[in-house]
Design a protein around this nucleic acid. Structure first.
Lengths: 319, 319
DNA sequence: GTAATTTATACTCGTTTCGAGTATAAATGT
DNA sequence: ACATTTATACTCGAAACGAGTATAAATTAC
């Protein structure tokens, strides 16, 4: 057998928020699992990786990407194309892109659709309450995973990971540990991808909706990065219309973070940080007092170093 | 001409701190510029990218890497191997690794040596004072770069970048913007790599020591990442001996961040966060009162979510 | 051997930030 | 008229933070 060649795959988690629903652009490949838009890097014609990504995302989905950010490069054997192309190794570079849904082009392929990202990660949405599945399904299965450790040290490591990820034992919930949680569930055999990649027999209820290849891992990385970045860079505004009410802004942040925020403090932060300015116009709401419409003050980027939408709730909020 | 093949190069910024000098392992390739240790990813034998990295770093430098972290994947044409192998495209994945110098192996290749990282980035060390070269050399040249913009909008963009990077106009110095500053200097033609990559004639004094390929860019990414991570994860301890005084710890943090810290507050933070515990033993100093030796409390990782060595000085410190 | 010097460590003080709450205003629907 | 919904202003106490002072324990200079 020849030495396998390498090819580089580019995958993009293209994110938008409609109302209170954070979504990702998913491609339904001929009846099989959802996938992120992905395509090959063409070394002959693409000057940089990001330009390559923009090129075929445009071709494939009609999207003109705005804000993009490289996430991570995965090269694991077995977690990509386990059956296909056995003599070509695919190294996949994941990207995060942010858009407004209104910018969605008419010519989007029909097999491309927005899907709420909590379909893939139902345990990540703590806005209403702690998702019941954590106590009813996840933690019992993870405790079993701990118990089945090959030895005592491994058990302790696993127990620590479970506590850190799902906030057992009084530890607070960390909204940014999305990847760590997914990887833990993968290793514990609680997501469908584990059985697909390893060929083992499925022996537990699969959690969330699976994706092709390692795309759910890339999406987890994207959510984690976005949740983190939110707090120290004004990236939310990439997802907002030019004018918005403060509540709309707050709901968007909450949708991304999967957490509820204190309304009055959120407004105070926005005002103090100079991130937004009123337009004087009022919204036309269905109910309640109309709110002022605000816009993003792009100038902050020049005035202050790295303003973000701090979430508050940094003091211990136990799980 | 055939379609160019892709190969994946792995480069590592292996960092240690001796005393007050943060250093990186550099390879002096037969009289030419310094390079980071780098080697190819072998798709036939390496199960993951990181395992591939560990394998040949071991072979090439004798190092057994401890803490490692992927940084970024660069695929720009022209900034890697501009002359060599025109029909193979190299995509390079950069890594950060942290070690203690004491762990340096005897069998290290003789062309491999520790070099202080401020040789490559002299403008990044603000411990004694603002580096004079910023006012004497960098800002004048950057103001020229702004003036030579093709049009007014470009000039404004460039001016903003200069202010944000080097803290002109009352903006504070941000120790984490290492990559942004290097990229700005590159585009402004103030580093040797720019002329090497573009073939243009050198028309300005080159700043800092150049490196092969895009390795100075990878090192800039590494420093930026490390400076950021320092503040929310206990990574410094990867660079410390098992027992150390609080001043040694502070000096290490200062060396990495390129900033001076307030001694009493630094101790208070360490104590409050539970990051260290006293051993009861005392150091044997050259001068002054002996200090207690401390050790890292690994347990914090289990008790608290994400403790870092907060630097203090987060309130505006103008440049 | 005493004073100056160097480093360690405890403690204080005023400001800012932050979480959490109350109070009031302005719209809609019944 | 009044309950309901949303907007917005303001307050209060706790914690975190920046910047000190004060004192202790060692070495070095004279």
């Amino acid at each position: 057998m020849n030495a396998p060649a390498v090819s580089i795959g580019l995958s993009a988690a293209i994110v938008s928020v409609e109302g209170e629903r954070p979504s990702v652009l998913a491609v339904a490949h001929d009846g099989s699992q959802d996938a992120l838009p992905f395509g090959p890097f063409d070394p002959a014609h693409d000057r940089t990786l990001e330009l390559g990504l923009r090129k075929w995302v445009g071709e494939q989905t009609g999207f003109d990407l705005g804000y993009t950010e490289q996430l991570y490069t995965f090269g694991d054997r077995g977690r990509h194309l386990s059956s296909l192309e056995a003599d070509t190794r695919v190294v996949s570079v994941g990207y995060l892109a942010l858009t407004r849904q209104a910018q969605a082009p008419a010519r989007a392929a029909s097999d491309t659709q927005w899907r709420g990202w909590y379909h893939y990660f139902p345990w990540e949405d703590w806005r209403d309450a702690k998702p019941p599945m954590i106590d009813s399904a996840i933690l019992p299965a993870l405790r079993k995973f701990v118990k089945e450790s090959p030895n005592a040290e491994a058990a302790e490591l696993r127990r620590d990971r479970v506590n850190l990820c799902f906030g057992e034992g009084g530890l607070p919930w960390d909204d940014e540990k999305v990847l760590e949680r997914y990887e833990l569930l993968y290793e514990a055999g609680l997501v469908e991808e584990f059985f697909r990649d390893t060929g083992k027999a499925e022996n537990a209820p699969a959690l969330g909706t699976a994706m092709m290849f390692d795309h759910r891992r890339i999406l987890a990385t994207a959510i984690a990065r976005l949740r983190g970045k939110l707090k120290y860079r004004p990236v939310v505004f990439e997802l907002m219309a030019p004018a918005f009410t403060l509540l709309e802004l707050q709901r968007t942040v909450e949708a991304l973070a999967g957490l509820r925020l204190h309304k009055q403090n959120f407004r105070r932060l926005m005002a103090e940080q100079g991130l937004v300015e009123g337009t004087g116009k009022l919204s036309a709401p269905a109910r309640g007092r109309p709110a002022e419409l605000f816009r993003f003050r792009r100038e902050v980027l020049r005035e202050r170093p790295a303003p973000g939408v701090r979430l508050g709730a940094r003091r211990a909020r136990t799980a």
